[in-house]
Amino acid sequence: MNKCMERIYNGIVKENPTFVLMLGMCPTLAVTTTAVNGVGMGLSTTAVLVFSNLIISALRKIIPDRVRIPAYIVIVASLVTIVQLLLQAYVPSLYSSLGIFIPLIVVNCIILGRAEAYAAKNGPLESAFDGIGMGLGFTVGLTSIAIVREIIGAGAVFGMTFIPEDFRITIFGLAPGAFFVLAGLTALQNKFKAPSATNGSAAPSKLACGGNCMTCSGSACSANHAVLEEIRAKAEAEAAAAKKAAAEKAAAAKKAAAEKAAQADKQE
């Protein structure tokens, strides 16, 4: 279960899809005009992401490697159709304000990215939790951008008015404002060194290739992923053993010194 919680933390903070991975920028910039849209878009994507990760992970040994992308697309598109019909039936206002961006969830790079990078290599349970983490991270990203944009651009958020009409800066509700706010929030995230995969808080690997399979594009590398992990684990175990041995040695030396001192005391 610990692994599952780690996945959620990883999705929301460490590899936040909006502020760290910079994935899914198209809906991020387009639908964050109001906070409600941001939450709606984020949660719809989360729903699709959880189930697509679950199904793809369960089918990962059945899907032939050469046709995996079309297979993923079929799974994701079916899920998106379900979400779209549900939204249309139960929250028609959200459905109409999100518009074309609901069907476009099919080609959202977070979903294909997680399918390729995680679900295709890990078990169904972890993959589902990875989907929850990434989806919530995306929701948090969209909602925070949307709240800032709506407060500055339209003066009100969730129906609460903050800024009188004369002082609203309309450009924040338009396309340039999305870029300003996204850049500003990403800069803040970097400035305060929130733990993430990109700002140097992750421990550097001792492997020759850097060991960071996330930024690696070579297919040979991803095939060797398991081997790399093994080597890394071995190296870590060796380092730990060496450290333990050194500590034991030091302790023994200390003990010997203490005994010596005690003997000296006795002689006196």
């Binding site: 800066i169 309309t170 338009l174 340039p176």
Partner: peptide, 8 residues
């Protein structure tokens, strides 16, 4: 232009 769009 920033002002022109914001406070047309």
């Amino acid at each position: 232009c920033f002002l022109l769009i914001s406070f047309a």
